[in-house]
């Protein structure tokens, strides 16, 4: 297991390095941030001073070398716009996004798995057909539209839930959290539900497919022949088997959930990093964009590592193979 983790870490470093190269070059060949930053009436000397100030006069590979050296020291550059370290800027917004993403993930699992298992066990029942039809809607309706509809119904027409912002937050270990206050929870509910809708549909379909496959296995019948109770059959024998694909897919999807919560954050004016990245792209704030992408890459790498470890806990057959390598 240890060898496996070390090997995976080494692979991760290569991935992160390659991504930094791609991201840096990609971002730096698009547009000219100086145009955006400078007063249109500034003279040539002023323009050149700004270019030198940001180091944009040097060739690209030198710029990249600087970036890499600084990055190793934890410095991903300063935002052109805000004049503060890009990393700090993003990390300030990160808790809000993470809170939103994890809430969405938890909702997707807590609602998706029971519905999926039910639909798998009673595949002919009307309720199951309704669940499956609903999951198709969850797949295909655009997130922003569902978000707008939710705001219209629950915030405007019924007035039950607030439509924007994080609400009252509590400071825990230097991080602001919404879900610890009632007000914060009410602010969190709609965006989290909105973001989780797609993943929930995915979980429902995975859980249903898994359930339909597993219930017909001999080992389920043998377990029944042992005289086990229905609840033990479902919650132990069935659940542990269907969790394997669910965990794999959700792990991969979690990265996407964090990286692409942009739409939901925009609709609900959630002050997370998705909103920051959209603004930064508009303003060609290169260091922020690069820093954001690097953080996302790191996040994907770490999540995949965790998924692999979780996977091996769930499936003993995987565990054994890892130990051999």
């Amino acid at each position: 297991m240890t060898v496996f983790i070390i090997r995976r870490l080494l692979q991760s470093i290569v991935v992160v390095f390659l991504m930094s190269l791609l991201v840096f070059v990609g971002v730096n060949v698009v547009g000219d941030p100086v145009d955006m930053l400078i007063n249109p009436e500034a003279d040539q000397a002023e323009i050149e001073r700004v270019i030198r100030h940001f180091g944009l006069d040097k060739p690209l590979h030198i710029q990249y070398g600087h970036f890499l050296l600084n990055a190793l020291n934890g410095d991903l550059g300063k935002s052109f716009i805000f004049g503060m370290p890009a990393l700090k800027l993003i990390l300030m917004r990160m808790p809000a996004t993470l809170e939103l993403a994890f809430s969405a993930l938890i909702l997707a699992v807590l609602i998706g798995i029971p519905l999926g298992v039910y639909a798998g066990l009673k595949s002919k029942a009307k309720v199951s057909r309704t669940i499956m039809a609903g999951s198709i809607l969850g797949f295909s309706l655009p997130t922003f539209w569902v978000g707008l509809m939710m705001i219209m119904v629950f915030a405007v027409m019924l007035g039950w839930l607030p439509s924007t912002g994080r609400g009252e937050t509590v400071l825990v270990a230097g991080i602001e959290l919404s879900f610890l206050t009632l007000d914060g929870l009410s602010h969190l509910l709609m965006p989290a539900l909105n973001l989780s809708l797609f993943k929930m549909s995915l979980v429902i379909r995975l859980a249903r497919a898994g359930t339909r496959e597993v219930v017909h296995q001999d080992y389920m019948k043998f377990a029944r022949a042992k005289g086990l109770s229905e609840s033990r059959l479902i919650f132990v024998h069935l659940m542990k088997n269907i969790l394997i694909p669910v965990v794999t897919v959700l792990g991969l999807e979690l990265g996407g959930l964090i990286a692409f919560s942009v739409v939901t954050e925009t609709v609900f004016a959630w002050p997370g990093m998705g909103k920051l990245i959209i603004d930064s792209i508009h303003l060609l704030d290169r260091p922020v964009v690069v820093a954001y992408l690097m953080i996302i890459v790191l996040m994907f790498v770490i999540i995949n590592l965790i998924v692999d470890v979780l996977y091996s806990i769930l499936d003993p057959r995987v565990r054994l193979q890892d130990m051999k390598t």
Binding site: A223, G227, L228, R232, H237, K240, N241, I244
Partner: peptide, 18 residues
């Protein structure tokens, strides 16, 4: 006939405790 993700002891003990 044996559940691939449960240990033998789990599968035997549950049969007794049922």
């Amino acid at each position: 006939t044996l559940n691939p993700v449960l240990r033998i002891d789990t599968q035997m003990i549950e049969a007794i405790q049922a």
